[in-house]
Design a protein around this nucleic acid. Structure first.
Length: 275
DNA sequence: GTGCCTGTTACCTC
DNA sequence: AGAGGTAACAGGCA
């Protein structure tokens, strides 16, 4: 599910729902392996009584600054947050609940159980391991050229690797490569300066558009992406290549194809994006 | 029912 | 270093 735009909308939703300033009075963990660090018993003991001071996004991580610790949450494929009245019955896919001092609870649901929580004294180590924020003012063309360097890898797995650029996933990588007219299997080292610059702009364009459209919600079921307030995104209606195989390319009219690159379903226009 | 697919990442071997 | 495979899981879909 969630890539940078979706995580950004989730963070905005948590803030809109007035989570900042609330105290965590208690916590329930229904699936122990969601809590990656520390042990569940210590997690419960430590998180109780802490106040949520601020919330922001770094790559695909949600970063909660608490009174004493930092809580990092990665939604992976199907993680989602919403608020419920404290006495609401726990639903099937609820993995963690944080009881708040305002009569509500913050519910974390994750049907596939891939999501991970870390409660840490400092999140520096985890957050320093990931690459540059593509929507930050530091992400300028010269910087991107430098990051691209002379890697021999294919461009698609390079962009998916969080240690180079933070926050891109399968949807937005396919969209950005289409936008920049670059074949997903081009070697990074073969890209010309013009192509790198085009790709830089394309990355910012597709992410900004995703945020503007409130994220991408594929399919109809509950396991897909929904905002904190339960809204679907709209970006799935605006995609140019992702899951558009068999349809005409919006730019040239050739038929969009789907292949596998780096074990991931990959969509591109064979006419606009030459190998 | 069966088998295949999925928006993420970590880990393994070659 | 990087490619390719597998795994963690559960549900949707043909």
């Amino acid at each position: 599910m969630p890539e940078l735009p979706e995580v950004e909308i989730v963070v905005q939703g948590l803030i809109e729902e007035q989570l900042i300033g609330k105290k965590i009075t208690d916590a329930h963990v229904h699936w122990h392996r969601t809590i990656f660090t520390p042990k569940v018993s210590e997690f419960l003991r430590r998180i109780k009584g802490q106040i949520i001071k601020s919330i922001h996004r770094r790559g695909k991580w949600i970063v909660f600054s608490l009174s004493k610790d930092t809580l990092l949450v990665h939604l992976r494929m199907t993680g989602k947050f919403f608020f419920s009245p404290k006495n609401q019955e726990t639903s099937q896919h609820t993995r963690v609940e944080l009881m708040l001092n305002d009569g509500r609870k913050l519910v974390y649901e994750d049907s596939r159980k891939f999501g991970k929580w870390h409660l840490l004294q400092s999140a520096e180590k985890q957050l320093n391991e990931i690459g540059i924020e593509p929507l930050s003012k530091e992400f300028i063309k010269e910087k991107f050229q430098q990051i691209i360097g002379k890697h021999s890898q294919q461009i698609k797995p390079f962009l998916l690797n969080q240690k180079y650029i933070a926050g891109l996933g399968n949807i937005y990588v396919d969209e950005a490569l289409w936008e920049a007219k670059i074949h997903p299997q081009r070697k990074v080292s073969s890209l010309k300066t013009k192509e790198i610059n085009d790709l830089h702009d394309a990355i910012q364009k597709v992410l900004t558009k995703g945020i503007k459209n409130q994220g991408t919600t594929l399919g109809k079921s509950r396991v897909n992406y929904y905002s904190v307030s339960g809204r679907r995104g709209n970006n799935q209606l605006k995609l140019n290549v992702f899951r558009q195989e068999g349809l005409p390319c919006p730019r040239c009219g050739s038929i969009i194809v789907k292949t596998v690159v780096a074990q991931r379903g990959t969509h591109f226009c064979p006419q606009c994006q030459k190998a």
